[in-house]
Simulated scan of single mutants.
Amino acid sequence: MKHLSTHDLRERGWTPAMIRDLLVTHDRERANELRVGRRDRRLESAVRLYREDRVLTAEASEAFAAAQDRARGAQSRAETAAATRRAAQETQAATVDALPLPALTRHPHADTLSQTDLWQHHLDGYLRWSLRDVADALTGLPRALVRAAQNRAFERYRQAVYALYGWADHASAGAGESESGRA
């Protein structure tokens, strides 16, 4: 007599609630063959097995069809909610791109200071702006979106400082070349 594991049932479209409600209890258990960790330990939880004939009988029932329709509807609603949430988060992260940069003025001793010293001077202004305005705009977003928005804000600020002093922008030129080189 063939048995199906919980994993097999999941692949056939069963949800944990459907298993609980329609099959109620499992028919057998076997040791879990899944190994985890550096020491290649077996998982302690046993695999629950369900007789195939019981599964087929349940799958032919009206209750299974109704439960599957409910599960599909819930899945669809969850996907829509996740897409809406992602879109809202991306819109919020994009507000950083519209934030005005802090006013930049040439250092009075720009002719005598090195590019590194001038950059350090302006970096302080960037940090204040970033901690005040940029951080406020990114509150509550996932780390990856925050990091990407912060990187874009830094790049905008860096380009503005480079333009202020007329420095050659090797970082942007190199990025453009590598992008066109890949195409």
Rank of each mutant, 00 (worst) to 15 (best):
L138N: 09
R72W: 11
L99M: 07
R70K: 12
Q150H: 11
R42F: 00
R182V: 13
L104V: 10
E59Q: 12
L43W: 04
T15S: 14
W119L: 05
S130L: 15
A82N: 10
R42E: 01
E29F: 01
E44Q: 06
V36W: 04
L123E: 15
N32A: 03
E177T: 12
H7C: 13
P102H: 12
H109A: 14
A183I: 05
V36Q: 08
Q115Y: 02
A171V: 15
R77A: 13
L145Q: 11
L23Y: 01
E90F: 10
G140Q: 04
A74G: 10
G125F: 01
T116H: 05
R42P: 01
G73R: 09
Q68G: 05
E52D: 15
H122E: 11
R72P: 09
D53G: 07
A93N: 08
L131G: 13
A60E: 14
T91M: 04
L145N: 07
L164N: 06
V55E: 04
D97L: 12
D69E: 15
L4D: 03
T25G: 01
H3P: 07
D27N: 09
A67C: 10
A74R: 14
L49C: 07
A110L: 00
R85V: 08
D8R: 09
R12I: 01
Q115E: 11
A88E: 10
E179I: 02
L23T: 06
D53M: 02
M1C: 03
E33M: 12
R42S: 04
K2F: 12
T112Y: 02
V96K: 02
W129V: 03
A81F: 08
A168T: 09
R72N: 06
H107R: 03
A67Q: 09
Y126N: 10
R20Q: 05
K2Y: 10
Q68N: 06
Q89G: 10
R51C: 01
E59L: 04
E29H: 05
L145M: 09
G13H: 06
R38D: 11
A183Y: 02
Q159C: 03
S114L: 06
V55D: 08
D136R: 12
G140L: 01
R51A: 02
A67S: 07
S180I: 06
